[in-house]
């Protein structure tokens, strides 16, 4: 997995700022934070997010289970929980896979 480079949130803000010369950098940064916040808040109330060609975010349910404390080996009861799940859309899947083939 170490073969891939990373793009961080600040890289993303820089790219968008460069492409939006009429907006000041602060507004671009606030917009990026706002979009991420809105996605997080929607997921938190169980609302699905659907972006065509990018993908969708939903919650997956994890039933309660008995786990173990790896240090002591003791059994612990773990409550049911919900975890965020992202399913890439067709556009994103195809772009990533197609590009990977061309690079080989």
């Amino acid at each position: 997995m170490g073969a891939f480079k990373d793009m961080t949130k600040s890289n993303l803000i820089e790219i968008l700022s460069a492409k939006q010369p009429l907006l000041n950098d602060r507004d671009v940064e606030l917009a990026v934070r706002q979009i991420i916040k809105q996605i997080s808040e929607s997921l938190s109330i169980g609302m699905r997010i659907e972006i065509r060609d990018f993908g969708s975010f939903t919650l997956h349910h994890r039933p309660p289970r008995v786990g173990r404390n790896p240090k002591s080996g003791e059994s612990v009861h773990l409550d049911e929980k919900f975890v965020p799940y992202f399913k890439p859309g067709k556009g994103l899947r195809d772009r990533v896979n197609h590009a990977a083939r061309l690079l080989k």
Partner: peptide, 22 residues
């Protein structure tokens, strides 16, 4: 901005960059 937000994430993944949004 909303369109570009998702487009730039896709574009990064397409060229083999993982996207880390802290």
């Amino acid at each position: 901005l909303v369109e570009m937000f998702f487009e730039e994430i896709c574009a990064a993944l397409e060229i083999g960059e993982q996207v880390k949004l802290s």
